[in-house]
Amino acid sequence: MTVAQWDGRSLAADLAYVKRVTGLSARRGVLAPLRTVTITAAGGVGTLTHYNYDAGVVVRAQVTGDLAATTVDFPELAAAVKAAGRGVVELERVGNRLVVAGPDGRSSVAVFAKGGDVPVMPTVGGTAVLVADTGVFATAVAAVAPAAGDDATLPMLTGVYLDADDAGVVSLATTDRFRLAATELATAAPADLATPLLVPAKVLAAAAARVAKRDGSVSVYADGGYVRISGPDSDVVVRLIDAQFPRWRNLLPAAGDDRMRARIAAADLARRLKKLSVFSVRVTMAAAGLRVEAGDLETGQVSTTFEVAAHDVDERAVGMVAGYNPEYLASLLACAPGDVELTWSPDAQSRRPMTIEFGGVRHLLMPVRLPDAAAVAA
């Protein structure tokens, strides 16, 4: 009989993280072995492990006591930990049951009887292809993740594309055809990426969000069609997306391209856009600000209008009108910590893709058609 003590709040958070990484919350009707989690404690370290052939995660925490490796149903364990409360939670193996006891209650979970059917997580070792500070890594991933697609029929658009140039400088990019995001990742040493990686965006974003709250470094390993993201207290293993990512670099403006420019406070505009429930907004550039109009633009019925201050506005941009999806625009602006530079081409009067630039991050947002676009161009 073995028993270990966990912090209840920490254990609940770690179980929620396992669910976010592996998609367990959406896996209804899945085979029982793919719904399990293995929990163990030894030497002051408690470990949660789950793998379902697509993605796996190992989470480590400081604990007291010991617990032999015990495999149980994940939803049942999560429910038992929630019922136990947020104080110290004791986990004790008693025969074929795992007893979970805390300040709010005591319950037990059946030990999974067919342990041999539980899939074994692949080993992804060797030398790390890149190493970066946790905060730097998290910031870079968070800057590109919103532009990734979620259409399973277009898998090449659901990942974060990572590659490295001859100098070992790493680029990250995502696109869903309407948005494009790209940035460079500052690594501890030149990266050694033999081939580009296309990592599922939801998994990478979840892993990055966790390491953002920890000090230290994150290392990425790639081997045999899998990638491992190793942080201070967790490891994530996921199958790479086997698809061709679009040629994205030529979609962004070149450094020497002539651009009309303006600067705005990203957070203010993103906050206002999130309140709208429309599919498109009309944006008009003025010398002192950006005016946004929302409503039924097809019939000219504008129901909401607001302005956001702008500065350093190129005089050529004054009077410019373009249409954008407010949800998409807000998702890109929300990544910025402060002011952003908006740029447009002085050409293509009826269609104006917008670039959003800040701190080495570049976003591109395709416009939507406005009913009066031709008249504006004239």
Rank of each mutant, 00 (worst) to 15 (best):
A194F: 01
A212N: 14
G224H: 01
A222C: 11
S217T: 15
L204A: 08
A222N: 12
L204R: 07
V211G: 03
A205H: 13
D223V: 02
V199N: 12
V227L: 03
A212Y: 04
A212G: 09
A191S: 02
V227H: 09
A212R: 14
R214G: 08
S219Y: 04
T187H: 05
Y221W: 07
V220Q: 01
P190C: 09
S219H: 08
P196L: 04
A189G: 07
D215Q: 04
K213L: 12
A212H: 08
R210F: 03
R210K: 14
D215S: 08
K202Q: 11
R228T: 08
T187R: 00
P200I: 09
K202H: 13
D215Y: 01
V199K: 11
A222G: 10
R214T: 10
V211T: 14
A191N: 11
S217R: 14
A207P: 01
A212V: 04
A207M: 10
A194L: 06
A201L: 10
A222Q: 15
Y221E: 05
R214L: 14
T187L: 05
A201H: 01
P196N: 02
D215M: 02
G225P: 06
V218H: 06
A207T: 07
A194R: 13
L204S: 07
K213E: 15
V211I: 09
P196W: 10
A205W: 13
A191F: 09
V203G: 04
G225Q: 06
V227D: 09
L197H: 10
V227T: 13
R214C: 03
G225E: 06
A201D: 09
A194E: 15
V220P: 02
A191I: 07
K213P: 12
R228W: 07
D215G: 10
